[in-house]
């Protein structure tokens, strides 16, 4: 699927949202990174969009990166198997998806989002072609975001 002008605009708004969420909630700088290896046994959080935009918004990271992210959000150390790690990924997905939706033009923003769902797939391949996606990095920790239509 080729990217439209709308998609390119949406990617810019996604970059801005991710940066804001990390600055405000995790006190970390976070920026897009060009390429990354897909994580093995990732933790993924998914949010369904319905309405003007229909699709699935996915945030995924390796478990170690998910744990570091949870610790940054909570401000305390966690265990890798602590359910708070997955909860944190869900909430991060919720904030990025919701923040991104808020930045869209009114016509596109006329959509509802579901609460986040967590899954632990065996793997997530390269970013899906049915939509758009980006890898981001904070302090060398890489995670992915994709919007699948």
């Amino acid at each position: 699927m080729s990217l439209t002008i709308d998609h390119l605009d949406w990617i810019g708004r996604l970059d801005s949202t991710v940066s804001e969420v990390f600055e405000m909630m995790l006190a970390r700088s976070c920026a897009p990174t060009e390429s990354a290896n897909a994580p093995a046994q990732p933790v993924s959080a998914r949010i369904q969009f319905s309405g003007a935009i229909a699709g699935e918004f996915v945030l995924f990271a390796s478990r170690p990166v998910a744990q570091i992210t949870a610790e940054a959000l909570l401000g305390s150390v966690s265990d890798p198997n602590d359910p708070m790690v997955e909860d944190a990924m869900g909430e991060l997905c919720n904030m990025i998806a919701g923040g991104w939706k808020t930045k869209l033009e009114a016509e596109a923003a006329a959509c509802a989002i579901s609460p986040p769902m967590i899954s632990n797939p065996e793997s997530i391949g390269t970013l899906s072609n049915d939509g758009f996606g980006r890898f981001y990095s904070f302090e060398g920790n890489v995670f992915g975001v994709q919007m699948i239509f």
Partner: peptide, 12 residues
């Protein structure tokens, strides 16, 4: 909040 993490973040 349905997220225990967010309840902690809000409390903080």
């Amino acid at each position: 909040d349905d997220s225990a993490v967010m309840r902690k973040v809000v409390e903080r």
